[in-house]
């Protein structure tokens, strides 16, 4: 884990609800929406993007740190919650990057109001049902096995052991919180919204980059192709020898694409 001095945690208020946010870096704000297992910790890619972006990483309500919001029933509700956050913090329009479930949240926000974003990056995003293969049923795995399934080769993936600060009892409890809230939000339809591809067609002016591991076994590449089809002028980058975590599995290519796109 990189130097803790690079980031700090603060609590803000969104429409009467508490929201804990990790912040770090300086420059143009970048909203980072984390994945279904939670915020994986401050990794190398965070540090590198923080050189010229102010990273804003809200910890999803009900994922163990930010308290649960009873009224948030699904991902579209969560997207509405974050739209309130972005607006109340006077951040719009800003850049956004979302990973897996967080990518789905970003897509729902964009489908509802593309003008709140300047650029959108979706990485192995959930939300659109793949046409080939299926979204992995991560609930049929215990959390440590789920984590291992997110990368192609855990043993040879740099920073894999640093994800979440490693596997320990305290982290296991946080994962269970995250998994429970993910179940509340996305148990059925499982990890996708059948309306989303249709709703995304409203987007006509939001530059969108889609990054996928070609061998992503959690959200197959064909889901990325579905996003590409739905979002006008979006670009899909499929990385070889890469699973569900391009940011650590193909770090250099990931950074090149994201930095190039956001600059």
């Amino acid at each position: 884990m990189a130097d803790k001095a690079q980031w700090h945690q603060e609590t803000t208020n969104v429409d009467g609800a508490e929201l804990t946010v990790i912040k770090g870096g300086s420059g143009r704000p970048l909203l980072v929406l984390h994945e279904e297992m939670g915020h994986p910790g401050w990794l190398k890619w965070h540090a590198e993007l923080a050189a010229d972006h102010s990273l804003i990483i809200p910890l999803h309500p009900g994922f163990g740190v930010t308290p649960r919001c009873e009224w948030i029933w699904n991902i579209r509700d969560l997207a509405g919650f974050y739209s309130r956050f972005v607006r109340s913090q006077k951040l719009a329009p800003l850049d956004v990057i979302g990973f897996s479930l967080g990518g789905w949240v970003a897509a729902e926000m964009a489908a509802n109001n593309q003008d709140q974003f300047k650029h959108m990056v979706l990485v192995g995003a959930a939300g659109v049902r793949p046409t080939e293969g299926e979204i992995m049923d991560v609930f049929q795995l215990m959390a440590p096995a789920e984590l291992a399934a997110t990368v192609l080769d855990p043993e040879h993936t740099p920073e894999f052991d640093q994800l979440y600060g490693g596997i320990g009892p305290a982290q296991f409890e946080l994962w269970e919180d995250a998994r429970a809230e993910t179940a509340r939000l996305a148990w059925v339809p499982y990890m996708h919204n059948p309306s989303l591809p249709h709703l995304l067609r409203v987007i006509d002016s939001l530059p969108t980059l889609l990054i996928w591991g070609r061998e992503d076994s959690v959200i197959p590449l064909s889901a990325g192709e579905g996003y590409k089809k739905a979002i006008a002028r979006s670009r899909l980058v499929a990385l070889d020898k890469c699973g569900h975590r391009p940011e650590i599995e193909q770090h250099a290519a990931f950074m090149r694409e994201v930095k190039g796109f956001l600059s």
């Binding site: 440590p144 409890e173 269970e176 998994r179 179940a183």
Partner: peptide, 19 residues
């Protein structure tokens, strides 16, 4: 032990067993 099914105590117990 599916997600959200267990009490906090059962989850705590699992946390040690499964990690």
């Amino acid at each position: 032990f599916p997600p959200g099914y267990n009490s906090k105590l059962a989850t705590r117990r699992m946390a040690t067993q499964f990690t």
